[in-house]
Design a protein around this nucleic acid. Structure first.
Length: 347
DNA sequence: AAGCCGGGGGC
DNA sequence: GCCCCAGGCTT
């Protein structure tokens, strides 16, 4: 470790004056910090705040989470995305209860052994909850370090992350209260002054004097990232089938996109009304009144759904296909992903 | 190393 | 449109 803290000292001083007031910064409860870190993976702070408060109210302890009904858990997570996070969260909670007596492992290695906790999250929890001397390198940190070092290596490469992690490790303060805040401080800088979109606000930066990108005028060109591949498009036809105030839903497969969430029945391709009628017939469903045709697009990271939807009042059905249910129109008990939001609005 | 996995806000 | 976001898991 470095014997001087040329980065940590000014950074921590700035952080203590300028840190945003975020709920997970008021606790040292590893459970609450863990929940926040999982929710924050690839997700903005603003999007997490409401979910976080509601989640901890519903499930205040790791024991509550471990025992939660899975469908209700998915309903709590509905709309937040990356749903495997929620399932891994519960799996890890059950591991903590079964293998660790309800107490969180207090080492980086122990944390990393839990489902859904990788390098970044183990470091973030270990430092914030236990004051461990460990790095936590996320997208914010990669951006900040690339600028501090004026390093033009591709930050999507594992080698670059290792390189930056090693540099951060040289800057760490000793274990304890400073470490509880150090990783938060680097990320805070990356989330506020040293952000990705607008030009970095170097004038107010506590590390301006030590930033090579600033002194060389390259800050706005960093970080360097490899271009991403184009996403594919899928055309689907969605069936919003209602009967006596109920709507027909089916459960998605246990793996893959939107696993285990509920959806309106849908098929590949764009159908006209004639084809839709035939499809309904093949399901043994009798249309009573055709109500609406509408289109919707939903963009995922690697695929785009171009959907046409048909809202049809149908007669009651004798034998429903497996995993299909009549759900109450408010969808109170079924987690339906945002991709179907335009169709949910019609209910 | 590359692909998969959501959703939304900012520009 | 395109960017990115307090990433992790799988192959």
């Amino acid at each position: 470790m470095k014997e001087s803290y040329e980065i940590a000292q000014p950074l921590l001083a700035w952080y203590r004056q300028n840190a945003r007031d975020l709920p997970w910064r008021h606790t040292q409860d590893p459970y609450a910090i863990w929940v926040s870190e999982i929710m924050l993976q690839q997700t903005r702070v603003a999007a997490v705040l409401g979910y976080y408060a509601r989640f901890l109210t519903a499930l205040p302890t790791v024991a509550d989470l471990a025992a939660m009904d899975e469908d209700k858990l998915m309903k709590l997570w509905q709309g937040l995305g990356y749903y495997s996070r929620a399932r891994n969260l519960q799996k890890a909670a059950q591991t903590v209860m079964a293998d660790h007596g309800g107490q969180f492992p207090q080492s980086v290695e122990g944390l990393k052994a839990l489902a859904g906790i990788g390098d970044y999250t183990a470091g973030a929890i270990g430092s914030a909850a236990f004051g461990l001397q460990t790095a936590a390198v996320d997208g914010n940190v990669l951006r900040v370090v690339s600028r501090l070092l004026d390093c033009h290596h591709d930050i999507t490469l594992p080698a670059t992350k290792k390189e930056f992690t090693a540099w951060i490790e040289e800057q760490l303060p000793p274990a304890g209260d400073d470490m509880r805040q150090f990783n938060q401080a680097v990320m805070e800088l990356g989330a506020t002054l040293c952000g990705p979109n607008a030009a970095p606000q170097c004038a107010g930066c506590p590390l301006q004097g030590q930033c090579l990108a600033h002194s060389r005028g390259t800050a706005e060109k960093l970080p360097v990232k490899a271009p991403k591949k184009p996403r594919r498009k899928e055309e689907r036809t969605v069936f919003v089938l209602t009967c006596n105030g109920k709507v027909l839903l089916r459960k998605r497969p246990a793996t893959g996109l939107l696993a285990k969430l509920w959806e309106f029945p849908n098929v590949e391709g764009h159908m006209d009304e004639t084809a839709v009628a035939q499809q309904l017939q093949s399901w043994g469903i009798t249309p009573v009144q055709w109500q609406k045709r509408l289109t919707a697009t939903h963009i995922f990271t690697h695929v785009e759904w171009d959907m046409v939807g048909y809202c049809v009042e149908v007669a009651d059905v004798d034998a429903l296909p497996k995993s299909w249910v009549w759900a109450d129109g408010a969808l109170h008990d079924h987690a339906v992903p945002s991709a179907f939001g335009r169709f949910v609005e019609t209910l």
